[in-house]
Design a protein around this nucleic acid. Sequence first.
DNA 1: TAATTTATTGACTGTTCGTTCAATATTTGA
DNA 2: TCAAATATTGAACGAACAGTCAATAAATTA
Lengths: 196, 196
Amino acid sequence: MVSVVGRPYEFDREEALFRAMDVFWEKGYKATSIQDLVERMGIRRGSIYNTFGDKHSLFLAAVEYYGEAVTSEMIKVLESLGSPLENLNEFFNRLVNSPRQRKMKGCLISNTVVELAPHDEQVAEIVRCILDRIQLAFHKCLNRAVELGELPRETDTIVLSHFLATSTHGLIVTGKSYSNPKLLKKVISVILSAIE
Amino acid sequence: MVSVVGRPYEFDREEALFRAMDVFWEKGYKATSIQDLVERMGIRRGSIYNTFGDKHSLFLAAVEYYGEAVTSEMIKVLESLGSPLENLNEFFNRLVNSPRQRKMKGCLISNTVVELAPHDEQVAEIVRCILDRIQLAFHKCLNRAVELGELPRETDTIVLSHFLATSTHGLIVTGKSYSNPKLLKKVISVILSAIE
DNA sequence: TAATTTATTGACTGTTCGTTCAATATTTGA
DNA sequence: TCAAATATTGAACGAACAGTCAATAAATTA
């Protein structure tokens, strides 16, 4: 419910949140200062606090926004029409070829799993939810592959979906430390060969 | 060269470094304050600065110590006599069953890859060196498996060694967010099935 | 014993941090 | 036109931060 009375915002809330997400993604939670956020979000300290609450609340909003924007976009790849196995291939290749991954930013979710989730239950909760959505998308994709005859009937799609989620994390971390696209492509081939 | 004159240290340097490593491992670099280190290392501020220099230098020493202690211990598993494939199995099971991993501490190296390496060339250098040692150990292990006839002659052991390194990262991150030992064991089976 | 060297100690420094707030500006509704 | 509501602004806050330093203690060497 948006109030109709009072001074209106001078900035776009979603745009500001997107930029905050970008800063946290790049620098992590602790290393991001309010001053960093002021500079990158393009609004003043007071406006940040007025709109998003404190730093921690803003971070939670940023992670959720990432889940809505970036993660959902990747999940759509898995849900595309056509061959599920080709969708998986497309998913992993986008993962390692995205400009942000190239800049060693990794993924805000895996970064957060490592930096914050073990010490912050609120963050852990949100992250767990997003990770579950990814794993579920893998699971559905694999089930569809079975239905279409791309994988054998007896395939354990649950375990394989967790394997793919684990591989996703692995590729992101490897990509952060050591970004050789050709090699990553070959590693992806091995990953995909494991499910066939 | 240790000086023979002057007041001797009242603490064990290695013990103190081990404890510092433990704090950084648990909390990360940014989230660890000098006060945290004072409390856990059991020595005063001045002694930390006198012995290890500033926080950043201490961190570098801690990461290197981790490489010597923890990583080398894991690499030894890969270099054991007997079946290389069984060694791989042992390696991954230790990875997900270690008490520290269970406490969601993950691995100091992968934590550092995510938090610090992208923004700190000195850290990146040390971490890269340790990652290379792990990958090399996988490579040697796989080559031995080929020699012993456990893997076919045409196996691309280079690519597979990177796949195993990636899987290691993945398991560590998955273990941090979602620690279900039974499931992780099954994921390990899938990983190992991919190289055979 | 005296001189030298180095470790220990805790108070102290300046900076940066996240956060708050009173003053002001801009809108709507009466 | 005035009252009410809300956003904007920049100064200011105390706390926490990394790092320093002079005084002191404990060892060796001459």
